[in-house]
Amino acid sequence: MTGPPASGRRWLVVVVAAVAAALLLLAGGALAVLTGIGRASFPSEGSVDAGFARDMSTHHRQAVTMAGLVRDRSVDPDIELLAFDIESTQNNQVGMMQGWLRAWDLPVNTTATQMAWMSGQEAMDMTSGLMPGMATPEELDELRALSGPELDVRFLQLMIRHHMGGVPMAEYAVEHAETEVVRRLAQTIVDTQSAEVLSMEQLLRDRGGSVLPRP
């Protein structure tokens, strides 16, 4: 293998080819970046996903508030456990939903109209200015003032109504959210809260209470 000039030429070809290949790869990569190929697409502001994540977070947080209050003050082990279950689960789910919003680079809270993402849902009664099933500030004050069996009954009534309001929101997200992780959690909420409504109704009947009208 002698002949420096020839090998020099050969190497030149090899080097040129290698450089060309590298440039091609770079160009391909740049093109992919520019066109967004391979990049996970995130839900945008105004999407069902973002609206659900925000409004269900708000909805959940009120349940956490009520459940925490009752877990502290009820003396009924069944109610205490139920309240803890609701509080811990929904707190966790709020964390998931807010985590999505951050990962999507969207504000966790906005001043946008609540429930706007559920277009055409006439079932949503927003006359009180609150999302479906939410307790009013007066109802929360009342709950804080109660104790004993009255507290348990009122809590069950409010939480059943709260769940009944939240389930259609989750059902809408199951239908319309673009992200699988959102649809999945929404389905979980539908299943869990539907089942929880039934067990709470049983607990309520056991304590002589009556179910509030649907939200």
Binding site: S88, T89, M96, L185
Partner: peptide, 11 residues
């Protein structure tokens, strides 16, 4: 089924 629920039940 109940994603996010706790495992704690001291009782």
């Amino acid at each position: 089924p109940e994603l996010g629920a706790s495992c704690d039940n001291p009782a």
